[in-house]
Simulated scan of single mutants.
Amino acid sequence: MKSRSSLRALISAGVLAAACAAGGAMAQDPAADAAADPNARSPEIVVVPLGEEEGEAHFVVGQMAWGDVLGILNQIQEQSSEQTITTAQNLWGARNENPPFFLFELARLTAESDPAFAVQAYFLGRSRTMYDAARCLDSSAVDVINEASAYAGVTVLEVIASRPELTIAAIEGIIESGSAFSGEASPWWACSFGTNAYFAAVNGQTLSGNEWLIVENRWPSVRDRISSNLQNNLDMMRNAVAAETASE
């Protein structure tokens, strides 16, 4: 029978584990007409100095890449506290158009004032990030799941650890609504986190859609895999809570 501490360990080990392995990148004819490809991407590198002792950081940018979403996040966080409610409303209202990365910021902003909503935003962001990363040809892009989720902050994780019923409700809602797959933003923001996009940027290359995104006829199988992951995590949480209740 699981104690509260074992529940926390279960959650910290990875509710919504990133079981989304992607295939390797495929070669593409360099003479392909990228201009006719709506999924063609021409990434670039932005170098940000971190200080004398810390060196510098390199970010992939271009067409809402990973570095771009970080830049927008920085602008959001520079807004005054008086704008928090409006910012949260805007982020939620644009949740389907924006990359799911911004749902983690929404979770951070609302973790203290509305924990149930913050957990809902967190798991919607995480499930959509899983879906985006799973559609990347570059398997290294899957690391974006935990990297992006961390931007929600420790307060959200503390709520998740202490109130498992909120996690159960959030995952139930995602499964019932199918909202993990209703985002409209390109998965490029997640795929550009991978090494292939970085080296393309370093070498000044344009990636055709076929070089970074799996073909669309494979997307249903990705959705099935993530749906199973969601259901397995929901069952795991329900069983853990039931075992803890029985032990009290």
Rank of each mutant, 00 (worst) to 15 (best):
D132N: 13
Y131W: 11
P115L: 12
A148L: 02
I168H: 00
A134C: 05
M130V: 01
M130P: 04
D114T: 00
A133M: 08
L157V: 01
G153A: 02
V159M: 01
R163C: 03
D132Y: 03
A152H: 05
Y131I: 05
D114E: 14
S149Q: 08
R126C: 06
A134W: 07
A152R: 04
I160T: 05
Q120T: 12
E147I: 11
G125T: 01
A141V: 07
L166W: 12
T155F: 04
A170V: 14
V156M: 05
I145A: 04
A121Y: 03
L137E: 10
R128D: 05
P164L: 08
D138M: 04
R126P: 03
Y122I: 01
L157G: 11
T129N: 10
L124K: 00
Q120A: 14
S127T: 13
P115C: 15
E158Q: 15
E158L: 06
D132E: 09
V156P: 03
A121L: 05
C136V: 06
L137C: 07
M130S: 06
N146Q: 11
D138H: 08
G153K: 00
A148V: 07
A134N: 09
D138P: 10
V159A: 06
I160A: 12
A116T: 10
S149N: 10
V159F: 00
A148R: 01
V142C: 08
R135F: 06
A134I: 08
V159W: 00
S140E: 13
A133Y: 09
M130L: 15
T167A: 15
S140C: 10
G125L: 03
P115W: 06
S149T: 02
D114F: 11
L124E: 13
A134M: 11
T155E: 12
